[in-house]
Design a protein around this nucleic acid. Structure first.
Lengths: 196, 196, 196, 196
DNA sequence: AATGAATGAGCTTTCATTCAT
DNA sequence: GATGAATGAAAGCTCATTCAT
């Protein structure tokens, strides 16, 4: 039950990958053990975690720790002097983050309702803070009134989020638009909206 | 195995509700039977369906049949002469549809990866046709070139989809914007984009 | 989960026998199933009981129901006019009852501490009422003051109980005395104590 | 595997206490290790004992060694000239011994059937010799013929044993008699029996 | 002597599915 | 068409024991 060890890390890695692929319920402890190089079914996992759920918790916490940066999204959005450039940067950054957290996104979508406790907290932290951060930036940078900034953030971030939900969660291979075009179009829309 | 009977209907109803609430794996055949008024665990379900998966298939097919209307979205978007009004109508209509198909949306998100065959086809049909339909309308009505219409459809519909994915799938209670404001803002953005 | 069925009865029978032989923990559900004619390990037991503990509960309740007679021990001790004869009858009756409840006695001794809830109640009902019943009889029949009757009952019944505890629980094969001699000696002692 | 060491002693102490509280099967090697100040689950116990059973054996042997005195009960029963006084002394002594061996008594009762080998021998040694010793004393002191002495010993010791079996094994909190009254009554009964 | 790690075997329980009635 | 009963397979988890360090 050490805080960290190579095996422990391998267990979390394997588990999160399998959870993302097959869902939490769809992944057995034996599969995780096997993927982590332990004898499947021998219960080796339980020397490192109290339960299967504890593995998920550890995995989610690791993701969240890694995402602390995203939480304060304004740090990325330094003033480039050019709104279009900043919006492009934002879009690319958020898409890249969502891509690197594909596993987490999949798990959240599959298990949000079956595993309330753990997953709910993670979603709240992740989504709310991202939306709030972007809204605050719109308020500061584009001088939008607070309520309007919130609404624009909801519409704008929704677009970016759904592009990854479609791909990673719903496995929709394509809606006919490549990433670059998507970003360009999104930037145009946001820019048209923000005036100037 | 009759094509249709009151019991069969009750089974599909109960099953889809339970799948939406607890996921496919999280719902046992016995639970479905009980909810459908049969003796739980007695296997009565198997007089109407070959397997648990067949119940899901039937449920999804029923949803898809009901959604045929949405497939040809242009039927709704009759010419009102006013682009803003038409966009507002579109947004409201799509959100309403997503709401009435909340069950399906949840199931798709939870099981897209664990039950490829059945669910994947449904998602493909549903999403692709909706996106394609909206793009076609943009092409006709707003005179956008085809590629651009596709891109704008992707960005625009994504926003609407995300709003319901957040609420129904990820259980995010609110991102600070009510539906009316969301629609208004979305319409503005689309309108700003489409020029004129 | 029917209240009664041949299989259910066989499960309780087998379980109580095995619990008596190997203890509650020492008996696996698979063993019970096998002894009851079900496929071991297939979980058939769970169609009749919610858990392994529920089987023990049902078994204990069955024993207790059967022991309702013993509870009012005075019914047996009808006035024969001869104290010696009545004491002899009592001793034989109690030993016979303990013998027919050997299983229960073993289970009580093995599991009194590991399964408090269920077993504790049974012991309390069984032991307390027997002691109280015998004390009441001594009070009525031999005109002993209440406190004295209680003390004599404790000493006297203790002897009888220990003879069966030694044999059934501790597996002491013999302490050099056969049952008839034991009863005769016990009767003499009680008689000497109760005076003429 | 040293014959004796502080850790070894702590292991036996902890183990016997836990066996008494939770039973042999109900106590894990990890629990014993933890209670003995070792890292639970690390297998430190196996540096001192070949197996879990060997710990129980060592514990029982230690108890038996301590009980060698009781085996020759007559040493206690020195001639006081007064039979009543000697009986009182005997009763108190045996009850005190049973109390100080509560652990052992519990273990014997719980595990007599699941762990025959080890425990059976201990019980045999302990019980038989006590009964035989008391019978011999009755034979000498009260001039009872051998067979009669054996029978009276069985009836008399049974009472004392039961009182502790009820309390320590069956957890019956009280049968309405305190220890002093119990002893007094027992002495009276034995005295009435032994005549003069 | 002690520990971190691993393992094989076992546990209780759940469940989709089948079948005679 | 519905039920009571049964079953094979698998799940999460525990545990006595071993071993390299």
């Amino acid at each position: 039950m050490t805080a960290s060890s190579p095996t422990r890390e391998r267990i979390v890695d394997s588990a999160m990958r399998l959870f993302g692929e097959n869902g939490y319920r769809g992944t057995s402890v034996a599969q995780i053990e096997e993927a982590a190089g332990l004898t499947p079914g021998a219960g080796g996992l339980y020397h490192h975690f109290r339960s299967k759920e504890a593995v998920l918790s550890a995995g989610i916490e690791r993701h969240l720790a890694r995402l602390d940066a995203l939480r304060d999204i304004r740090r990325v959005l330094t003033d480039l002097g050019d709104l279009r450039a900043e919006l492009t940067l934002t879009a690319r950054y958020i898409l890249a983050e969502l891509d690197s957290e594909e596993e987490l996104l999949r798990i959240m979508a599959s298990e949000a309702r079956s595993l309330p406790g753990i997953v709910e907290v993670a979603i709240e932290q992740l989504v709310s803070s991202t939306y709030a951060g972007f809204a605050a930036w719109l308020h500061d940078r584009a001088a939008l009134p607070e309520e309007r900034a919130t609404a624009v953030a909801a519409v704008g971030l929704g677009s970016l989020l759904s592009s990854r939900v479609l791909r990673s969660v719903l496995r929709v291979t394509s809606v006919g638009v490549d990433d670059d075009t998507f970003v360009t179009t999104w930037v145009e829309m946001m820019h048209a909206m923000l005036g100037e």
